[in-house]
Computed example of a mutant assay.
Amino acid sequence: MSEKEKQIIKTLADKLPAMSERERGYLEGTIATAAAMSSKKEEQEKNNSEKKVG
Rank of each mutant, 00 (worst) to 15 (best):
S49A: 14
Y26C: 01
A35E: 11
E21Q: 04
K51H: 09
K41I: 10
K52Q: 12
K41G: 06
M19S: 03
K10S: 08
E21A: 03
K51S: 07
K10G: 10
G25C: 01
L27D: 01
S2M: 14
A32E: 10
M1L: 14
S2G: 15
M1H: 08
T11Y: 09
Y26E: 13
M19W: 02
S39M: 09
K46P: 00
E3T: 08
S39V: 02
D14K: 05
M1Y: 06
S49K: 12
E45N: 06
S49E: 15
K10Q: 13
E23P: 02
Y26M: 09
K51R: 15
G54D: 14
G29Y: 07
R24M: 11
I31P: 00
G54S: 11
K4C: 06
S2H: 01
K52E: 15
S2N: 06
E50K: 14
L16E: 07
K6E: 10
L12H: 10
S39F: 12
P17C: 03
E3F: 04
N48P: 00
K15S: 07
S38D: 09
A34D: 01
S20N: 03
M1C: 15
G54V: 06
S20C: 10
R24E: 05
E23D: 13
A18C: 01
E23A: 12
T33Y: 12
G25N: 09
K15H: 04
G29I: 05
S38N: 08
T30A: 09
A36N: 10
E42F: 03
L12I: 14
K4F: 04
G25E: 07
E42Q: 12
E23W: 04
R22E: 12
D14M: 06
E28N: 08
G29R: 11
V53Y: 11
L27E: 01
M1E: 08
E28C: 00
K15P: 00
E28W: 01
G54I: 05
K4V: 09
T11E: 05
L16N: 01
E28R: 06
N47M: 14
S2K: 08
G29K: 11
K40L: 13
